[in-house]
């Protein structure tokens, strides 16, 4: 008993019956043991997130090439990205690509996810099996999904899509899904949609199951058809779930490097150069300019602050409901 850490705090607990000391009034009854229990969490939050975050901003103000000493350059990196001769074109291209990639992926995932959830919310034979099957992509490692699609997209006749086109549809020309600048981004978006849709489905399905059945019964008695009931009952009830899911997915989709990395590495001619990929190319792969790469990430951060702010508020307000 005495060997269990934390037992020495017992007097503090007993003290609650007596008038509290000034310190406890100020810091709360259990402040000592509370902060002791929180210590590991705080180490992670400060050491692994806050510190690198600040280090990233600091780094973005320096000229730092891997293996060489850093030099303070102020806002030089930002100027180079925004208006500089060498990088501005690439940077603004990555803004455009990231926006197209994220907006398209989120919009399609939302529509498909909603359709899937509506169908899976119906009762039919084999419903459980159907759910398990349709959720599979979500469980697979992203990099394996990316590699599989790279094989499906293969530009030779060995690639699944090209094979089917040639063999069953009599097409002669082989399509270069990942090498054609006009197709590459849409090919990558398709993969993001394939894997990401089940998350939307899952979130919508969970929210649909919380809608009381009486609402539908009442609407049905009033003669409302399927579409009316969807617009009047389902959609309003799902609004919070739609917001949370779309915002979460926006953060993850925009910041994920995996699909682009494994499918195109940003090419052809930067057609799929999203901003995390650009940061990687600038900082890790090519010139190894860490300061410039950090500036790429920092420039995109304000976009996510809004999403993080809204999500934090929503998640705190639902805390008690589990």
């Amino acid at each position: 008993m005495a060997a269990i850490p934390g037992t020495e705090r017992r007097p503090a607990l007993l003290r609650t019956a007596t008038p509290r000391s000034a310190v406890s009034r100020l810091l709360g009854r259990d402040w000592r043991i509370a902060w002791l229990f929180l210590l590991p969490l705080l180490l992670v939050l400060v050491g692994l997130v806050t510190y690198p975050f600040i280090a990233g901003i600091w780094l973005s103000l320096q000229r730092k090439v891997v293996g060489e000493p850093a030099a303070w350059v102020g806002l030089q990196n930002y100027r180079e990205l925004l208006v500089g001769e060498q990088y501005a074109g690439t940077f603004w291209n990555s803004v455009r690509v990231s926006l197209t990639y994220t907006a398209t992926a989120i919009a399609v995932k939302l529509l498909l996810g909603m359709a899937m959830a509506l169908m899976l919310n119906e009762r039919f034979r084999g419903q459980t099996l159907m759910r398990a099957v349709l959720f599979l992509p979500w469980a697979m490692p992203t990099i394996i999904v990316a590699l599989t699609w790279r094989w499906i997209y293969d530009g030779s006749v060995a690639g699944l899509i090209n094979f089917v086109r040639v063999e069953y549809f009599g097409q002669e020309e082989l399509v270069q899904f990942l090498a054609d600048p006009k197709l590459a981004l849409w090919s990558v978006v398709t993969v993001a949609i394939w894997q990401g849709t089940p998350f939307f489905t899952m979130m919508f399905l969970a929210a649909m199951q919380a809608i009381p059945g009486e609402q539908y019964e009442a609407a049905a008695l009033d003669g409302a058809n399927v579409f009316r009931r969807f617009a009047d009952i389902t959609l309003p009830s799902l609004a919070p779930a739609i917001t949370i899911t779309a915002l979460l997915s926006t953060i993850w989709t925009a910041n994920s490097i995996n699909f682009v990395f494994a499918l195109t590495r940003g090419g052809p001619v930067n057609a799929t150069m999203t901003f995390p990929m650009l940061a990687y190319e600038v900082g890790i792969a090519g010139a190894r300019q860490l300061g410039l790469a950090a500036a790429v990430s920092v420039l995109f951060f304000p976009v996510f602050i809004v999403a993080i702010y809204i999500l934090t508020k929503r998640m705190l307000s639902t805390e008690g409901r589990a």
């Binding site: 997130v49 780094l59 995390p276 940061a279 950090a294 990430s297």
Partner: peptide, 15 residues
């Protein structure tokens, strides 16, 4: 805790 959960690693990987 929530903010940390939401901060995307892509913003942290360079530092």
């Amino acid at each position: 805790t929530i903010v940390t959960y939401l901060i995307p690693p892509a913003l942290l990987f360079i530092p």
